[in-house]
Write a protein that binds this DNA or RNA. Structure first.
Lengths: 227, 227, 227, 227
DNA sequence: TATGAATGAGTATTCATTCAT
DNA sequence: AATGAATGAATACTCATTCAT
């Protein structure tokens, strides 16, 4: 009202990076991923997401529609992130056994390093999976991994190190099971079993899981195996 | 509305009334268990719990204090229920291998039949375990199982069917892992892998888990094992 | 927190009339009638209604559901009020011509004295009548009047003072038309025609309307009427 | 985005652009008229107006200032439109009785064909007439009609077909009353009286109104009129 | 023991309006 | 002349919790 906003002539005329739609979108999505995974669907606050993303609430609504749609976008993003990691695993250029070891290690590591993945899955399953059912392309997101895993199993069978008849989806679920629970339930395990859920302990979980899966995949020893 | 049915003051202090009070308490607790496990902590509604339990909201407050305290009671109840099941397993009168098989089968079955157990654990872990940390006797609730499992392992080692050096807590976590994930994440698995998460599929999960655990426990074959 | 709310021993122990559900309901309904008629549907504020009624907002929601339902209740109330006035008109004990004069006078008077009636009708018609269509018993509310008016017309025809063939609904609409517009549109008329819309002017409107309606109802003069 | 189509600077100052500006103004005004009349003042959305007009929201603000100013412009436009229609009625070249008939017919027809006129008047009266009071030239907009109507009445009195002493403004209000209510309140009438508010019904309203007004204007029959 | 009545403090969502280009 | 990006200030509605009986 009084003084015009004198721009000091020699400086940059404005914070350059404002008004960048794509950048705002990403900021909101990442803030939502964190908030939803920390607080769950009902507990998440749009206010908190706006604050984290450094934008106003109306912008969130104009980009994503409503809380549910934002939650769906965040859930999808969680899957996209793990797929990107798995794509880089390069299973086909490893020996079958190393491929399995690598997949186990990556899976556990991803769960630990990107804790919102597990949290989002837990939240979504608590909600009965209604949202993920509505995401069109979720099937495609995961299928490359299953294909790779199937090929790895076949190579192992051909090489005589794996027994035949193992379903790649079942195998993936086994691996995920062994990696998921110790991370997902770390808080309750720590209290109930009074044990330290820390790096070394998780490293042992990883080694045990690798051994478990490989023992399960191994064909029976030729001349009279177990018992 | 007018006069309460005045019990003559000097007699026994209305035992029927006490029964009702205890029944109300149980009704509230069970309603809370269902509501919290279906909706999570933030999503659960005191109104809904009152409705399910068939009591008024003030009664809930007078019995349990507030929402958090009710949640804590429900969480504790979930642990109590699974402990009661495990206590009846009678591991010590089975062969070591059968004991392991029985524990795996029971664990999966309990997760499937009492879905609020998994839901409560998920909810509590999403919340960072703050509540369970405050429950005094949770350690004792779980410890009998660990003792039994340790004894079973020792018997197996003595009998030469298990290798030594396995920690009973780690073993229990492995078993729980294999049983937990397919049930906990049934909704997302169904959609992402387009597979039927049904009775037969779960039965195969059970068999696979039993085999996995036993193969893991078996000592290396005497004359040259796995590479 | 500090001092307990000492009830001064000799006084009445509390504001007696609080916690009276029916009384709260009426207060809300009347406040809503005023607020909706002053501000329209979109312009009305639940906050303002709560303030006017002297209750909290949640109470409004617990009694009426949501804004639309409250609006519907207020609209219905407006009709109930005018019906009660018409019921007391006692048309059947007046001469047919006096009955018409009385109905005209009452109608204009009601529009002036209960301004929310016109405002609610205007609001509802602006909204396309969607709400009134959903009120079940609106037809019955108005029908007694139509019956009475039909009887009055018949008596007039029999007495030779009214011509036959007049539909009572059409007649009522004529009367309403003449009374409605000068009240409903007082604000714009005042400005556009720079005329005083006040008591005397409305009294002339009443007299003119009575004359118009009666002239319209009169049978043609027996020996060659108008032109 | 890159270069605007630079018009060579010295030539005529881009007349095409000016046409576009005027067209945008009209588009906004007409969109506003529709939106305000469909939704009322509080219910109208600037977003919706921008969408209907095919322009951006900031353009609306740069042309009209704010929502209230746009509403005022739309209200004024409604009056301008009906004045244009009335100007073409050419009352002075018709017999006094035909002139009245024509005015009644035109009024009803305009209300039916330009529904935003009635809606805008209702909206403005619901708001207490605050806006129209601020429109400077509203008086002039309506006065030609009153002058014409006064002349018509005088001609009728001179011809002996109308009685003297009728105020032209009062007469116009009577006519407007009879035409306004059945159109304005069509939605509620349809439901409350369960009658069809359609073309034929409105045509009968028109004929009845014409007859009513003429009967009212007629001088008392020379040899003993109505009582 | 038990409850109908009532509310303070939020929470998702909307909307007129402005900024920067 | 025109617009995509962005927001402050509401506004409808919810929910854990308490009051009064």
């Amino acid at each position: 009202m009084t003084d015009a906003p004198r721009p000091s002539p020699a400086r940059k005329p404005a914070p350059v990076r404002l008004r960048d739609a794509e950048r705002s979108r990403r900021a909101i999505l990442e803030a939502a991923l964190v908030e939803f995974s920390e607080a769950g669907h009902a507990g998440a606050r749009i206010d908190a997401i706006a604050l984290r993303a450094g934008v106003s609430k109306p912008l969130i609504y104009s980009y994503f529609g409503d809380k549910d749609a934002l939650y769906a976008a965040a859930l999808r993003e969680a899957y996209v992130q793990i797929r990107e990691g798995e794509r880089d695993l390069d299973l086909e250029h490893k020996t079958p056994e190393d491929a399995i070891r690598a997949l186990v290690a990556f899976t556990l590591q991803h769960y630990v390093e990107k804790p919102w993945f597990i949290s989002m899955l837990n939240t979504e399953n608590l909600r009965g999976g209604t949202t993920i059912r509505a995401i069109e392309d979720v099937g495609e997101i995961q299928s490359p991994l299953v294909t790779q895993l199937g090929a790895t199993l076949e190579r192992g069978v051909a090489a005589g190190v794996f027994r035949p008849g193992i379903d790649p989806v079942d195998l993936y679920i086994m691996i995920a099971s062994l990696c998921y629970f110790p991370v997902s339930n770390a808080h309750t395990l720590r209290v109930v079993f009074r044990c330290a859920i820390d790096g070394p302990w998780l490293a042992r979980r990883c080694a045990d899981a690798q051994e478990m899966v490989l023992r399960f995949l191994h064909p029976p020893a030729p001349g009279g195996g177990h018992a």
